[in-house]
Structures are given as C-alpha cells and as structure tokens.
Amino acid sequence: MLRFILRRFASAVVVLFTISVMVYLIFFATPGVDPAARIAGRSASPAVVEQVRIAFGLNRPLPIRYLLMMDHLFIKRDLTSYVNIGDKVVPQILAAAPVTLSLVLGAVVIWLIVGVLGGLVAAANKGKFIDPLIMFLGIAAVSVPAYWLGEVVNLITQNELHSSVFAWLPAPGWVPLTQSPGEWALHLLFPWLTLAALYAGIYARVLRAELVNALNEDYVRTARAKGLSERRILLRHALRCSLISITSLFGLDVGALVGGAALLTEVVFGLPGVGLLTYNALENLDLPVIMGTVMYGAFFIVLASAVVDVVYALLDPRVRIV
C-alpha cells in the first residue's frame, strides 16, 4: 500500500513539473512580450532596456531562467511580478486564496444541500411528476453558461431594481470575513448561488442515477425482504453506497475550484480571488504571476486526484494494480 501511495505521489510531482515547463515555454513563445522592455517603460532607450535585462537576469539562457524562477517561487518565495514591480507573487496568491475559499466553501454548502436533496427526492419519487421536474431543473442548471448567469444576476440586482427590491444589496466586490461577517455573506450571496447552480444540477442528476441503480441491487432487495421501510432503505442503505461514488466526484470538483476553476464567477462578480488574479495576469502576460497561479491551481487538482485515488485504493485493493 505504501508503495502505491509513494508511486502515486511521485507521478503527481512529474505532472506538476511538466506543467511548469509547459507554462514557461508557452509564454516565451508568445510574441511582443519582452519583459525587459516592459519593465523599463515606454520610451526607454536601448541602454536602459539592457540594464534592466541584466538586473532581472533576463539575459541568461532559458533553462537557467526557468530554474531561477522556480528557485524564487518555491525556495526563496520572493518571485516578483513583471508588471507590478516589487509585488511578490506568493503573498499575492496567499491573499487571494481566502477569497476563492470563501466563494467555494459557501457554494459547496449550497450545492450539497440542494443537490443531495434534489437527487433523493427525485429518486424516491421516480416516475411521478416531481422526478422529471427536478431533472429538468438539473438539466437547465448544467446548460447555463455560468458567466452569463452571473451577468444576468448583476443586471437584475444592480440596475433598475437596485433602488427598490435589491436596495439591501451592496455593489459587487469583496469584504473579508474578519472585517464584517454580515457584509462578507451579503457580498458573496449571489456569487455563491451562481456558482452552486451548475454543481447542484450535476450532483442531483448523478445522485439520482446512482440511487436508482442502487435500489435495484441485491442488498436493497434483501433489505426490502426483511420488511424495512422504503425511507429507511433509501437513506440508510442506498444513499450511503451512492455517496461513496459522489465523494470522488466531490473531491475532484472542490480541488479544481479551490485551484481557480471558479475564474469566470470571480471575473463577473469582481471577486479578487485566485481566478481573477490569474485572469488579470493573463491579460497582462505577467509570467511570474501566471506561473504562480497555475502551479497553485495544478497543485490542488493533482492533490485532490491523488487523494481520491489513494482513498479508493484503501477501499478497494484491486485498484492498486492499475
């Protein structure tokens, strides 16, 4: 088992390394981004540009510069932006992470409650009117582009109705939990709902399918034969088994979201999280920040999938051969 875990984490490191090299190469293949010229400013003379090039170590060969960047990012942790000179990348990410975490955790609570309830109710009422209704809502939720939903929400809440129905709602933005918990929740309310809609739809659909399958399994028939109530069977037996497969899905989703997959929601609602940081860095082609955020995001995704694999291997020894 230990060997499996070690191997799994070794391959995670290989993946992270490859990603960092890819990001690095992609951005040096991009035209029109001589970082030295950009740091030096608009009408800098060639002499000044050269000065900057040397001062920032930009005159050295690519592999060396890659290693220097990794050294500054992971070991010295003093990698600085090319655009906001002196602005260190690691603290920027650490400052943005709580915003993303707040957004994701709130959305997780909402989508788990709505998704699990929706899946349960639909499965328990299979064939009745409420089942297709819930599934229809689920499909609608997974078919809506998240950013568009966000913009429409902003349009409704911030335009004409803002002076009447939504007068209680502040302008989009971010307030830290430590500053004012009430304002924090108020600012995040609609981002939470917008982000949760998609996942609630997915989870309700997946859970319903799992439950319907489970209700046909032998152990459920045995339980029925024993004379247990349908509700008890659904909650105690079928749900418990179905939740196991949901858990892996959940692990991967949360990993991706914490890693910055909520980018669009953050952009639309102006939340200064990891997603918005990445988005701005990409707009400015600010390589150090992009490198930092990609590594941060990839770390969570790789970690989540490694943990999910290991947990699976613990539960089911056959997986270890794979």
Binding site: A40, G41, S43, A44, S45, P46, A47, V48, Q51, A55
Partner: peptide, 11 residues
Amino acid sequence: VSNPNAGSWYN
C-alpha cells in the same frame, strides 16, 4: 533605478 527616460531626457 533605470528611469524610463534616463537615456532620452536626463542624459
């Protein structure tokens, strides 16, 4: 500090 215009103005 490598002022952007050091080479075009202040020189």
